[in-house]
Design a protein around this nucleic acid. Structure first.
Length: 281
DNA sequence: CTTTGGGCCTGGACGC
DNA sequence: TGCGTCCAGGCCCAAA
């Protein structure tokens, strides 16, 4: 499932294909994904020139001269790009949206589980859009640091794992990278969020930045059905230290020699967390 | 204000 | 082989 690094990877794939082009055809093959498409979705995009392909949290923002296409890949969303001359595959069962661009390139959005969504906002209204307005700082931006994270965790009674997965605390950290960040920072996922202050918050902010950057550098990680924008199979693989590795030895310490240690799994807020109880306190 | 739980979806893994 | 069941996940929203 796409988390911030995957969405950023998709953005980087889309930007050179879309920027500067106009939409010569827009096809939606059902009336809704997670939410309904706006009634004027097609008419507003047709003929519009794309100025920028941006990202905010896990949302792709396709800016035209008047509008912003807000695009979330959800859980199972994949983007396929066909460059000029490529053979476009027959329409698949879950190919819900197709954009044809003035260059001749084609962009297809496939999303079996339909947790993805598309919406439109006027450019001047984007910051106030209901899906965007309450999102916390971008973890890779200048507005994110130890002290800023600490301030946002103050008074939070939930676990640190649940707090950093909350997009209002910090943007774009999903289930996988929450576990990975806490592991790198040496913090127990069960720790109350408000106890992560000072040096601990500094370590965690750094860990979040580092793990996201490493995953972006790896071209986005793959899990199950996520694919790269160029339609290829997920040939790159970011190696997770703990995620999905319950029962395995912790790569960073000697906990495997103690029968009771190693990577364990627990459930928090209905989601799996993976951690090493020896390394993470 | 914060926190919790429900709901949206399908496909793949698993047990019988 | 075919069926049912469970799980995966982001994240909004209503309710407490």
């Amino acid at each position: 499932m796409p988390e911030l690094p995957e969405v950023e990877t998709v953005r980087r794939g889309l930007a050179p294909v879309m920027e500067g082009e106009t939409f010569s055809s827009v096809q939606i093959r059902r009336k809704n994904l997670r939410i309904p498409f706006p009634k004027d979705f097609v008419s507003r995009l047709l003929g519009a020139r794309i100025l920028h392909v941006k990202r905010r949290s896990k949302y792709l923002l396709i800016e035209t001269e008047t509008d912003v296409l807000i695009w979330h890949l959800g859980m199972s969303g994949q983007v396929r790009i066909y460059k000029v001359g490529d053979t476009v595959a027959p329409v698949g069962k879950h190919d819900h949206v197709q954009f044809d661009l003035s260059s001749g390139a084609v962009v297809v959005f496939t999303d079996p589980r339909r947790f993805g969504l598309m919406d439109l906002a006027l450019r001047e209204d984007i910051a106030a859009h209901r899906l965007i307005k309450d999102i916390g700082p971008e973890p890779l931006g200048n507005a994110f640091s130890g002290p800023i994270l600490a301030a946002r965790l103050k008074n939070r009674q939930v676990s640190i794992k649940q707090a950093i997965m909350d997009a209002h605390t910090v943007a774009g950290v999903g289930n996988i990278y929450a576990s990975e960040s806490l592991y790198r920072a040496g913090l127990s996922p069960k720790r109350k969020a408000y106890t992560v202050q000072g040096r601990r918050a500094e370590k965690l902010a750094t860990a979040i930045k580092n793990v996201l950057n490493a995953a972006i550098d790896a071209g986005g990680s793959t899990l199950k059905d996520h694919r790269t924008t160029d339609g290829g199979l997920g040939y790159f693989q970011f190696s997770f230290a703990v995620y999905g590795r319950a029962g395995e030895a912790c790569p960073d310490c000697d906990c495997d020699i103690y029968s009771t240690f190693g990577i364990s799994r627990l459930e928090q807020g209905g989601r799996s967390t993976y951690y090493c109880s020896r390394k993470q306190r």
